[in-house]
Simulated assay, not measured.
Amino acid sequence: MAANTNAERVDLAPDLSVSRITKGNWQLAQRHGPEVEREVAIEDMRRFVEAGFTNFDCADHYVQVEELIGEFRTRYPDLAKQLTVQTKVVPDRDVLPRIKKADIEFVVDRAIKRLGVEVLDLAQFHWWDYDVPGYVEAMGWMQDLKKEGKLRYVGTTNFDCQRMSEIIESGVEITSHQLQYSVIDRRPEHGMVALAEKHGFGLQCYGVVAGGFLSPKYLGAADPAAPLANRSLVKYRLILDEFGPWSLFQEMLTVLAAVGEKHGTNLSNVAIRYVLDKPQVATAIVGAKTAEHLEALKAVASLKLDADDRAAIEAVIAKGAGPEGDCYALERVPGGRHTTIMWTNQNLKGVGAR
């Protein structure tokens, strides 16, 4: 079956057209939460592609996810022709002091094999520790692999403005930058949006529904007690703390729900649409363990927020305390609450490729 042509699309590059709603697959990773059934995951991928959500986001350290997508491609070759897959190259923190091009190439070659493709559509690079030099050189190796035909395009994820500028000034061509952006996390507006506009790269935004917190499930609910059900909720509960008290979050949910009711949709879709309408935003990466919310997501394309809608949302945003600072800065504070929940050695298991 052909993909739904009514789904919104965007050109990340002249020959790289992707769905604006991208299926995020972190929730399928082992250790994220309860184990997913492979057959269910693969059939849900089919449903997403048939619905027009043909861009999948994954990463080398999302354990088993690249292999699941590769299995989907093998099982549904016609749908695979419509699919674009963007993965991430995330060298282990322990590898960074001695990283070589061979380590980067190892991860890329492994992703190509896992996904069952000849070339990666888009590979997005992440660097855990700015105190370790080498991220600019490593991005140069990524560009080399593009020239060698292993990558169609090179992107980045979770870099701040200073480091993005260094990378761009070195001559690396950045197609897109993946970062966290939502109604409760506006850090991209602290310089990255302007940088993206200046250099012509799109923003691919994760966390747009805050790991599921921006959903009707939590409207009117008490602040959930630990332990939370999965790692997404753990991560975004900390972001909620930066935004403000649970009562302010409830105010945000109430406003989003009112806007949704006005337009005949749910509050999650309003949160997604709000981000998609922001300058330089190319895609919204919506994490999906199952296709449970697929039908509702289809309504995002036709949702049109007006000035009153945006003003109501921004009135609540203005009451928020944060998060402050540049993109992913809180997640890099040594010993900080946002940093200590990260697993930084899941890819090469602390050793180089050679």
Rank of each mutant, 00 (worst) to 15 (best):
R163M: 12
A291T: 07
P133H: 07
I341P: 07
V108A: 09
F213M: 04
P245N: 13
Y181H: 08
Y62P: 04
R310K: 13
L276F: 09
E197S: 13
R93S: 03
I168E: 00
R337D: 14
G212V: 06
E39M: 09
P77H: 02
D308K: 04
A2C: 03
V108R: 01
T22E: 10
Q86V: 06
H126S: 12
E43D: 15
N4C: 11
V154I: 12
Y130A: 11
Y135P: 03
V154H: 04
R163H: 14
H338Y: 08
M164D: 08
I21K: 05
K349Y: 13
G220Y: 02
E50D: 10
A102T: 14
V136R: 00
E148W: 08
F125A: 06
E37I: 13
G70R: 00
V132N: 05
M192D: 04
R337Y: 01
L228M: 11
S17K: 14
A315Y: 00
L115T: 00
G244H: 02
L145I: 12
P77L: 10
R186D: 09
H177W: 03
V63I: 14
L253V: 08
V107R: 06
I317M: 11
R47H: 14
T175W: 05
Y76V: 12
Q82D: 08
I104T: 05
I174P: 04
P34Y: 11
F72S: 05
L233H: 12
M164N: 09
I341M: 10
L256F: 02
E118I: 02
V85H: 00
Q64R: 11
K150L: 13
V107Q: 11
T157C: 15
D78M: 11
L294Q: 02
K150D: 07
K23M: 15
A29Y: 08
L228I: 07
K289Y: 04
Q30D: 14
N6T: 15
V281L: 09
A288S: 14
V117I: 07
D121Y: 03
T265Y: 01
Q30M: 13
T254E: 03
M342N: 12
W26Y: 15
F213Y: 11
G24L: 10
G207E: 01
T344R: 14
T74D: 12
A102I: 10
H293D: 09
F56W: 02
S170I: 02
L276T: 03
V208E: 01
E148T: 13
L330N: 07
Q204W: 00
D60S: 12
Y206N: 05
A291P: 09
K298A: 13
T254S: 13
F48E: 02
P224M: 11
N6I: 05
R186F: 06
A296Y: 03
L68F: 11
T74Y: 03
T265M: 05
D109L: 09
E66M: 03
H293P: 03
F201M: 02
E295Y: 06
M45F: 15
A221M: 09
G24Y: 04
L330G: 07
V351K: 13
T157E: 07
T22Q: 11
L294A: 10
V136H: 00
S268I: 06
A226G: 04
F201N: 00
L12G: 04
K81H: 04
A123L: 07
